[in-house]
Design a protein around this nucleic acid. Structure first.
Lengths: 223, 223
DNA sequence: TACCATCTGTAATGTTATTGTAATGTTTGA
DNA sequence: TCAAACATTACAATAACATTACAGATGGTA
């Protein structure tokens, strides 16, 4: 995600920037409202994080100017003021959310991501990618190294779930609930069998395997 | 909740501590900034309550040092000074909230709990860090100095427990109950064996060891 | 209806990794 | 210096996982 931070306090800005980058986003920085307006007009950002009080042009004026241009990029306003009236003022100026200093970075991150999600109704991911393995949810196809792989419906659901949680361990209980809709332990080895079948299709024909067993815990899909 | 009180006035400290404990929290105490910094680095706290003026290292310097480490644990600063400028200074140093003496304990409690809640509204702690040792609970991975470390399930549980109580002595009885689900003494050396195996993986290959024996008491994981 | 193909779960069997035990060695503190 | 506490090692039992074959269910088609 591309995020523009408009904040005159360089220290605060670099702190936010660093945190956003660590969470996998691209973050630019403008030092005041005028510069921020210019940058926001020049490039497409997914979210703007705007300090309320700044030299030259304050945050609210900047947002108002942007909205006058018909730019609807979501804006999170940062402010040291916390009164209800200030909050209302901030939202009236065109802000989409309002965060009062001091705030925890985790909260800023959560709000920024919420704003972005709100914009395009939860960014319907239609393609999943893990390493050289790709799944197209609409076409219901799976490809690895350019080779088409045919999966049975249950195998497809299983792989979809694993791909959506790639890098994380997925437990047997999670699989039973999310892939089989079982809410009890069937006392059989259904999972083992399907994992085995899936492996024979997505891993066996290729040099590097993606589906790893984490003994005592579950399975992990990882490049 | 785990809270660290950094306060040189022992009487004040024990008062706060007692109150926090009565509210169901675990509260540790450090007598000055240096000790506080050390303890905060060694263990994971949910909130730090830091007195502003202390011998050796004052509260603001301590918080600044912590932030320089990229430690974002929420900090409530206690101070006898009440001017607006002091408050700003406190927040600039990296404090998250500021409470002026004299205060009512109820207010301190409210603020501490608010800070903890604000930190992650719904995010569960998924990563544990002790020194250069990191554990990702979702991915079920352990890394030290950038090296991946493979652990057996029981070793993983053991280390997870030690990391969650880092800086504290963990007794054999605690380990038997929480890692083995034994509620009796198996009269064997299971723990010794597993501690040994864990050490050979997380400590032996590295210059500084983290897992220390506390003779007659148990073990302590500390940077 | 009968036929066929496809999909999925079960169960039997094979394989491997993990864990506790016990034997033995080492350190520590009184 | 001695006993207790802790550390290390090897090994065998067993629990966890993998694979295969098979059979019931389902749905389409003549």
């Amino acid at each position: 995600m591309r995020i523009l931070i408009v904040e005159d306090d360089r220290e605060a800005a670099s702190y936010i920037r660093k945190g956003l980058r660590e969470s996998g986003h691209v973050a630019d920085h403008a030092g005041d409202g005028e510069e921020g307006l210019e940058m926001a007009r020049a490039a497409e950002y997914d979210v703007l994080v705007v300090d309320r009080m700044m030299p030259r042009m304050d945050g609210l004026s900047m947002v108002a100017a942007l909205r006058a241009d018909d730019d609807r990029t979501p804006v999170l306003i940062l402010s040291a003021l916390g009164e209800v009236d200030d909050r209302v003022e901030g939202l009236k100026a065109g802000g989409d959310d309002y965060l009062v200093k001091p705030y925890a970075f985790a909260e800023l991150l959560a709000r920024v991501e919420a704003l972005a999600r709100r914009r395009d109704p939860d960014t319907v991911r239609t393609k999943l990618v893990v390493g050289d393995l790709e799944m197209d949810l609409l076409a219901r196809t799976v490809v690895r190294e350019g080779e088409d792989i045919l999966l049975q419906p249950r195998e497809f659901r299983l792989l979809e779930f694993l791909m959506k949680h790639s890098g994380q361990v997925v437990t047997r209980t999670m699989l039973l609930e999310k892939v089989w809709d079982y809410h009890f332990d069937p006392q059989t080895n259904v999972i083992d069998v399907h994992i085995s079948r899936l492996r024979s299709k997505i891993d066996k024909p290729f040099p590097r395997s993606l589906l790893h067993t984490v003994r005592g815990a579950g399975y992990r899909l990882q490049a």
